[in-house]
Amino acid sequence: MDFLIEQPDTVEEAVRILAERPGAARAVWGGSDLVVEVRDGLSRPEVVVDLTRIRELVEVRETGDGGLSLGAGVPLEHLARRPELAERFGALAEALRAVGSVPLRFGSTLGGNLATASPAADSAPPLLVLEAEVEIAGPGGRRRPALADFFQGPRRTVLGPGEIITRILLPPPPPGARGTYLKFARRRALDLALVSVAALGWPDAEAASGVRFRLAAGAVAPTPLRLPAAEEILAAGRLDEETRTAVRRAVEAAVRPIDDVRAAATYRREMAGTLALRAVDRVLRTLEGGVA
C-alpha cells in the first residue's frame, strides 16, 4: 500500500487535512474497512489520516440528563465493557458484542461503523431506537443530525468533504425502558447480519397496550430502518395473535431486502418479521411487572 500518513492530535487538524485534499485523503481508525479497501484496489488514497491520536474522540461523558456522549473513536470492545451501557442502553451493548470478534472490536469504532454505512452495520439499529444523534465536525464547523437522517443509501451518508464523526449522542432513554438486539447470521462470530432487529420498550399508561416500542431493522433495506408502522400497532392494543400478525405484516411491508449470495430477499423479509416479534417478546419479558 502506497500512501502518506498524517497523525493529527486534534479534530480541527484532521478536518483541515481532509478538507485540503477532497477525494485524495481518507480517515482511518482500526483499518477494518479502509485498509481492506486499499489492499483490494477499491480505493487509492494519497493521504491516510490516522484518527487514533485524537483524545477528544475517545471520551465517554455523561450528558447530565441521563444521556451519554460516546466519542466516535472509542473501541467497540471498550464500549461493550462499560457498565452504564449494559444498564441504560442494553440494546447497544448487545449489538456491540455481536460485531465481528474480540480483536476486530478492539480495532473498530462507532464512528467507523456508521461512516462506512453498511446496511448491515450492527450498531445502527440500536442507535436508531435510542434516537441517537451524530456530531459531525467539518470545515464549516460542527453539526448534529439525527442518526435517522444520517444514512443516505448503501455506503452513502450526509458526510461531506473534510467531515468526520466526532461523537454519538444518546439521549436519556424513556423511564423504565429495556432494549435488545437480535442478529440473525450464518455463524455467531465474524459474520454480517442477514437480518437484525433492535427493540426498545417502556411502560406507557397512555398507550392502549400499556407499553410503547421503538423498532429498527438492519440488512433489509438500502439503509438501517426504523419501523414506525409496527411501532404504532404495538402501542394500539394487546399483543394477541391478531396484533402479532399485523406487526409481522407491517415489518414485511416496510423492508426492501435484496437477493445476494448470503440469503434470498423473500427469506430476509420473513425473518425480519420473525425477529421483530422475538425482540418484542424478549423486551416484554425483561420489563418489570411483565406488562401485556
Binding site: 500518513i5 497523525q7 482511518v28 482500526g30 483499518g31 477494518s32 485498509v35 481492506v36 491516510v48 490516522d50 487514533t52 473501541p75 470492545e77 474480540v102 480483536p103 476486530l104 478492539f106 480495532g107
Partner: peptide, 13 residues
C-alpha cells in the same frame, strides 16, 4: 495488552 489484527493495523499507528 489488547488483541489486534496486525494485517489491518498500520505500523505507524
Amino acid at each position: 495488552g489488547e488483541p489486534r489484527l496486525s494485517c489491518i493495523t498500520l505500523a505507524l499507528q
